[in-house]
């Protein structure tokens, strides 16, 4: 039986995650428990959601440099308005999602570089976040807190949440007709247009869906940390891009993998824990994360080479 290209694409992220997990368990056997796993992957849930959001933007050949500030903004709204006045908070978040959809349309209509527009938006989100929450604080909505600290039997919350996100994103993007349309826009916009589809609607829905996932990421993050601050998720911008690429996605052509993206996010989170278990000097922690990123990509190149060799008759 020949392995399909998509499966092979997924093999590298899965292998790297398992390898890292094995490394963590070897260094710290106590992590091999319900609580240990929950602690290891807790913070991965919001990162996984943000990665799926970034992946949706990358599916239409754009790049969102405002992801980190947007998730921070959502976290600030969640910790203030969504807690104190849920209706107003929900309205603010809906308006933010509508803004994202509008951005997707404007970028397409005026033929703007998405990098620059989202760069500008990152200032806007950061400014709004500072206005809402000038000093760190706020309170998480009870329901978000309850979901994030819940302890389902047998499997930790973090694992169930990650699996749910992966399956949901997979069904939405790889199996639904809307998902096919969005990926088609990334693959060949003109042919999708000639086939009679509205590019504007496809782009608007890709951006709006991305915003929905990012909003979920912000709420999850607040549920975990119980409070928020305007800079809480700034590193998510680069983490989400790296997560998509680690998971087998590409910058262009609508080639993305939702399951891979979630696994990429888990791998990046785990890399941090692995390095602290290794007792690497804190000076080199960031550097070692870069090195892990490079190694995974090298592994992918190797597999791609094997694949193209195997494909020849």
């Amino acid at each position: 039986m020949r392995i399909s290209t998509d499966t092979l694409r997924l093999a590298v992220p899965v292998a790297s995650l398992l390898l890292l997990l094995a490394g963590v368990f070897y260094l710290q056997p106590r992590a091999m428990s319900y609580n240990g796993l929950n602690l290891l992957f807790n913070l991965a849930v919001p990162i996984a959601l943000a990665t799926v959001a970034q992946m949706l933007i990358m599916a239409v050949n754009d790049l969102d440099l405002s992801m980190g500030t947007f998730v921070s903004f959502v976290a600030c709204v969640a910790a203030t308005y969504l807690h104190d006045a849920p209706l107003l908070g929900a309205l603010i978040l809906l308006a933010a999602i509508a803004t994202y959809a509008a951005l997707g349309v404007i970028i397409y209509l005026r033929n703007l570089p998405s990098i620059v527009v989202t760069l500008g938006m990152s200032f806007v989100w950061a400014g709004l976040a500072v206005l809402i929450l000038p000093v760190p604080g706020g309170t998480a909505p009870e329901w978000a807190r309850a979901v994030m600290i819940s302890k389902p039997p047998l499997v930790p919350m973090a694992i169930i949440a990650s699996a749910l996100i992966a399956v949901f994103a997979h069904l939405l993007i790889m199996r639904s007709s809307l998902g096919v349309l969005i990926r088609g826009v990334g693959g060949n916009q003109r042919s999708v247009q000639r086939a009679g589809w509205s590019i504007i609607a496809a782009r608007a829905s890709a951006y709006a869906l991305a915003a929905c996932f990012a909003v979920a990421a912000g709420i999850c993050l607040v549920g975990l940390t119980t409070g928020a601050d305007a800079n809480i998720a700034l590193r998510y911008t680069l983490l989400s891009i790296a997560g998509v690429i680690l998971g087998g996605g590409e910058f262009t052509g609508g080639r993305i993998s939702p399951i891979g993206a979630v696994i990429g996010a888990l791998t990046l989170t785990l890399a941090g824990s692995f390095l602290s278990f290794l007792r690497i000097s804190p000076d080199w922690q960031i550097g070692a994360q870069g090195a892990i990123l490079i190694m995974v990509l090298a592994l992918r190149l190797l597999l791609n080479r094997l694949e193209s060799k195997g494909g020849k008759p």
């Binding site: 404007i106 005026r110 033929n111 703007l112 570089p113 620059v116 527009v117 760069l119 500008g120 938006m121 990152s122 200032f123 806007v124 989100w125 950061a126 400014g127 709004l128 976040a129 500072v130 206005l131 000038p134």
Partner: peptide
């Protein structure tokens, strides 16, 4: 102006400039 308004204005101005400048590339 406060830090929040300043950041927002910076972002708004960047986007406006890009929108204005994009007329010619289109």
């Amino acid at each position: 102006l406060g830090a929040g308004v300043r950041l927002m204005m910076t972002g708004a101005i960047i986007i406006t400039v890009i929108l204005l400048a994009s007329g010619r590339t289109a």
